[in-house]
Structures are given as C-alpha cells and as structure tokens.
Write a protein that binds this DNA or RNA. Sequence first.
DNA 1: CTGAAAGCGCTAACAC
DNA 2: GTGTTAGCGCTTTCAG
Lengths: 355, 355
Amino acid sequence: MPRHVARPSLATVAVRVGVSTATVSNSFNRPEKVSDTVRSKVLAEAARQGYAGPDPAARQLSRGGRTDTLGLLLTEELPLAFTDPAAVAFLQGLAASCQGAGQNLLLISATSNSDASDAVRAAVVDGFVVYAVRADDPHLQRILDRRLPTVLVDTPAPTDAVDWVGPDDRAGARELAEVLIEQGHRRIGAITAGLRGARYSGPAEHRSSADLPASIHGSRIQGLRDALGAAGLDDLPIEERPENTHAAGADALHALMDRRPDLTAVCVLMDVMAIGALAAARDRGLDIPGDLTVTGYDDIPQAAAAGLTTVSQPLTDKGRIAGELYLSRRAGGPSRRRVLPTHVKVRSSSGPPRC
Amino acid sequence: MPRHVARPSLATVAVRVGVSTATVSNSFNRPEKVSDTVRSKVLAEAARQGYAGPDPAARQLSRGGRTDTLGLLLTEELPLAFTDPAAVAFLQGLAASCQGAGQNLLLISATSNSDASDAVRAAVVDGFVVYAVRADDPHLQRILDRRLPTVLVDTPAPTDAVDWVGPDDRAGARELAEVLIEQGHRRIGAITAGLRGARYSGPAEHRSSADLPASIHGSRIQGLRDALGAAGLDDLPIEERPENTHAAGADALHALMDRRPDLTAVCVLMDVMAIGALAAARDRGLDIPGDLTVTGYDDIPQAAAAGLTTVSQPLTDKGRIAGELYLSRRAGGPSRRRVLPTHVKVRSSSGPPRC
DNA sequence: CTGAAAGCGCTAACAC
DNA sequence: GTGTTAGCGCTTTCAG
C-alpha cells in the first residue's frame, strides 16, 4: 500500500533525481548554471511530483531580501473602499506608481475583529500606505510598530517618523464656508460620516473641538467652525451617519432639516453622501439652490454631473504621490510632508439664499 | 567604536534578556503562557532594539500554515482595473467575501516585463483569483503551475482543474445581436478592446473564428457572428483598440463609420468604450438611435445614466461568488462552474433603423 | 557543473 | 513558567 507521501519540496525532488538540493534550486532559479540534461531530469521529476517550484515563504526567509510588496491599510470596511469613487481614484494613482516599480499591492482587511487584527503583523511586505483611518486606529499603531517605511494618507500623523500626503482638509472646509458666508448664508448645517469612528448615527454638534477625533472628518468640521467663528457665527448643527452612502446622505439631510428647517445651506463632508443629500433635498420639494444650498467634499467624477459645489482635491495624484513617497523612501532620511492644493469648485447646487 | 549591530530578532532579544527564544516567542504570540515580569522585560528589550515582532516570513515557514491571503491577478495594467467600473464592481464583491473571511487581497501587478513576471511565483498566498485575462496569458499558466486553489473569472478555462465563474459572453452577445436584427438592423459593426491582447489598433474583422484568441472579447465577437450567421448575414466589420477608454471608443467609432458609413448599428463590446462611442456618434451629427444604434456590454452603473442599451450581468455578485468559490474550495473536490445570467437591457441608445 | 553544509528567524514538542 | 531541540524549505558560499 502507498506510503505516506511527503509534500513535495526541493529535497524530495533532489533525492529522486539523485542530485543535491542546490542543483534543484539552480534548475529553477538559475537555469544557466545547470547542464541541460540534469535540468530537464529535475523538471520532469518535479512535474511528476506536482512540485510547483520553490516555496515563496522559505525563499523569502533565506534570501532575506525585499518582498516587492506594499501593504495598504484601508478603512475598516474593505468593500466600502470600492464604493467610494474618491478611494477608487486614489487606488488608481497608487496602483500606477506600484505597477511602474513592479510592486504588488496587499490590501489589508482591517476588520475590527481582534482575531484577524494581526493581519498587519503577519503581512509580508516592505512597507505600508495607510489610507483614511483615524489617528487612534489600532491597526495604524501596529503598522507604526513594525517600523517599516510608511506613508500616511488622509490620516492625521500621530508621529513625524513617517511620510504624509493629503490636502489641508481644515483649510479646504474653511474656504468653502467662507464662500457660503460671503454669499449671505448665516444658518449653515453639516452632515458628516463616521465622526466618532463608531457606528453612531444622529446629531453630533455637541462636541468640543478638542474632543473631535483625529480624522479627516474632524478636520473638516474644524474648518467650517473656523470660518463661522470668524464671521461671528457659532451655531453649526451637525448630523452624523456611520457610512458614506447615498442613502445615508439622504437620511441625514431629512433628519437635519426636520430639526432645523431654517437652514439655508448644508455642507455635506463627503461627495457620495452629498449627492444623496441633494436628491433628498429635492424630494422635500426644496429648490436648489434657492431654498437650500448643498455642498460636498472631494470632487469625485460624479460631482460634476450632479452639479455639486464641492471642495476639489487631486484624488488620483494623491495616490500617485503616496506611491512615489513610498518608493523614494531612503533609510534614515527625514520624514516628508506633501500638502495637496484644494479649491472650492462652485457649481449649480450653491447660490445666495433666497430670503 | 560601535560594533556591527545585528538586525534584531527573537534571538538577539532573548540573549540580552537572558531567556530562551521560545520565551520571547511566547511573549509575543501567547502572552498568557509567560509571567508578567519576564514578558515586560522582553517587551522592553525588544522596544530598545527596535524589534518589531516575529518576522512574518519565518513565522509562515515554521508554522507551515495558511497565509490568509488571496492573490488576485488582474489585467496587465493594474491602474486600468480601477478605471473600469465593471472591474471595480467586481472587486467590491470580491472584497466583501474576503473581508468576511478575514482574507487579505494581494493584487498582483502582472506586467509583461519578464523581470517581474515571477511575481506570481513569489506570491505568498493560499490561492488565486484570476480576472479577465486571456487564456494564453503566461501569468495564468504560472498560476496553474502552482496548483493552489484557483478561481477563474471572465477567463476561458484552459483546464477543468480550477473553478470558474462568469457570464456566458457568447450567448449574451448573440442575444444582443438578435434584438438588433429583430428591430431591422442588417448592417451591424463592432468595436472591441484588445482582441489580440497586443497593442493592436485598427480593423479586426479578418480573423477566422478559430483564430479568435481565447478572451471574453473573442467570445463576444463569436456571439455576434452567431446571430448574424443565423440571419444569413455574414458581414461584421470590427474596429479594435488596445484600451478600454472613452477616448478609444470615440476614436474607434469615427474610424469605423468613416470606413462603413452605411452601418445602422454598432455594438461596442465594453461599456466604457461604448459611452465614448456614443458621444462621438453625436459629435458626428448622427441622431441616436435614428441614424445609428449604439450598444454596450456589462451594464456598468454609468450605462443607465447614459441611456445605453447594453448586456447586463451581475458584476458585484460575480466578485462575491468568486470569493465564495475560493473560500469553499475543498481539496480533491471536483471543479465547479457558475454561469451567471445575462440579459439585454434596452435603453434609448437603440431602436429600429430609420431607413 | 555539482555537492555539502551552514544558516535565514521562527514555532512546536517535549523536557525541566 | 521556561528552556532545549528539532526542523520548516530554501539559498548560498565554498569545495570539488
């Protein structure tokens, strides 16, 4: 009866062919250093045993070299990353950089599930790019602990040991609010996603600035408050939803307008939600922008079609630059910080308040 | 002067703390099996040395276990994958499956560059999903060689040793052409992307069926020919472009209509190109669908907004199912084949020919 | 051109 | 609790 067959390896092939493991290794990795006869025997035996070639992990270990893989930590819910056009544009830029340098991209599925939480520790990568997570995200901490070259994107930098790229979200939001105030708006509200990072849904204005979690959402709220404060306004009702979706945006708009029918402008801090909010506002029978101005943030491709006034930033470039920072990282060099330009793109969803 | 400092490892930490490597290992992996005193000493020393924890590759080797990582082979140009909404929808579905199972996703950048061509061999993964590559793609062959659980998507299956999911592209295209013929169209043209896989740009009708490369594009062309043949029509001018972009679609439409102004319908076999072609047709002053019917394939979200008649398939589900097939793969089990439903979605870009 | 042997850094049994 | 000792599967000098 058939003996227990060991999983094929360099050694099992070597022994059957009657050569050393070194020769088998060479047959696969440096064909020119092996005679054709031996090589073909090796390959034949390998095929017979179903041996697919050197094990990547073992290879990695003994070579001790680079993995040519970049780890990408995305928002908690991986699928959502593909739902948000802003994230997709970012990925596209990052992929372009990686592809050019022959780097693979490992998408780390950062579930809050603690079991899988060491996906970061187990990742066989040369470094990381972290996209749009909160400064207090536990995965981010683990990444920092690994002390590999790391680039933070749309993430407040908890340390200056890493490179950083992103827009000045606070300034962008401030400029947006200034435009609205300039147009005559005095009662402005905001809709945001995941301010607390938790699954919270509801009003969120009762948070002090210091209490704002370290996230892009917090920065954007700060920016709005900056502008309002400068104009002597201190009322900013905020409605928060956990997910950045059309439905959540619509839902939040209804909740906010039910609470505060007097608002003349609503700043939605993510474009996807903003587009949903825009539709919801029309559903309420509001004339846009006569009765209500609605604005977004990010300027995703769909924003133009929707006529959405929004804060524009170079999404794809952001990805490309993140890749370039990562690739050009030199050991011991100082950390670099690239602030991307931002500007308010005025479209048909905004205008002076009617009254 | 400072002696050469070895890269920190379990051993370097162990020796300085005066414990065994096993204890250090346990401190990191099974805290409960180590006394608090020892553990904190270990952690302190590790921090001092800048030791980030067990090396993933070595860990992987000795555990001999799973990597919890799925390798995804995409079309040659990775960034393009994020440009095509059909691919993004697929990724979203796949990511949802992966996330649920705590699997990471390694995007393999399959450059034609032969240097990087063993990215497949070097990938530390438990298996592969292959999306939309040609049957004769060399990377695909390498993946098959690794004999890991593999799922093919939108890729003709060169072997039945792997699982497969996709629509019946040939049938979908045939049904589309039947609808057009039914409406009275007799002179139909086609626009396709990368039929040859090469960087070819130009007419492509002079290829026998047998010669059609094994790709979804080939299947779709086959489908059109099936329907035309059944109706006694044998003329199918084809214009090919290497990339699936709006610009390429527009360009191809102009080229095709310059050659064959008599056409009453053009089947563009990818939605992104189709939307570009639609715009180009209008630019030529053609009335849609009076002067010309233009159709697409895939039914990406933007198709509805563009009023594009197209062949619809469940894009996100395709990704989800690919993930499920992969996750439910049992050694030695028979390969499975999931054919997705397809149906023609008639919108405003198609109609009976005017004349 | 081929072989022998020393690790790469870690984990898993077992002992103590 | 903690230490010892084998490997995991491969690459790499260095001889022959």
